[in-house]
């Protein structure tokens, strides 16, 4: 008798469980975050301008060239100047090799080379073809 009373008081004492739906799941939405080419360019130009060592520059290059696009000449210029800042000639050459891999055809590659010719002459960068042509 006593035990039953005790049990009932204990049961009553328990606060009513106010069940709130957990917010583990993000509400579904059809809007995907889409970075525009311009903001991508701006992001990587800023990244390369602030990169302080070779590891950072090469990490940025790996990320930058991993997208389904060819980085804009502004990004390339920032990357090459970053390579100059960290004193790594090979990385600067490698950037141009990366462009060659990313572009669709030889004309596009040539257009990049023409666009960046002043930069290459300013810094004294030979592309890989020039290094190994002789």
């Amino acid at each position: 008798m006593l035990r039953a009373q005790l049990a009932s008081t204990l049961l009553r004492a328990r606060p009513a469980a106010t069940r709130v739906a957990p917010v583990f799941a993000r509400p579904s939405s059809s809007a995907h975050g889409q970075e525009t080419f311009e903001s991508f360019t701006e992001r990587y130009v800023n990244f390369f301008q602030s990169a302080q060592d070779l590891f950072e520059v090469q990490r940025g290059l790996n990320n930058c060239f991993a997208h389904d696009l060819v980085p804009a000449p502004a990004v390339i210029e920032a990357a090459v100047r970053a390579a100059r800042r960290v004193n790594d000639y090979a990385t600067a050459v490698r950037v141009f090799e990366g462009i060659k891999e990313k572009v669709e055809n030889k004309q596009q590659y040539q257009a990049y080379l023409d666009e960046l010719k002043p930069l290459r002459e300013e810094l004294g960068i030979n592309i890989r073809e020039e290094l190994y042509s002789s």
Binding site: Y89, A90, A92, V93, G124, I125, N126, L131, Y132, S134
Partner: peptide, 16 residues
């Protein structure tokens, strides 16, 4: 970099 010889450039590229 403009003062580097082609051999030095090639060596730098090759090693890296």
């Amino acid at each position: 970099w403009k003062s580097l010889s082609i051999d030095e450039k090639k060596a730098a590229y090759y090693v890296a």
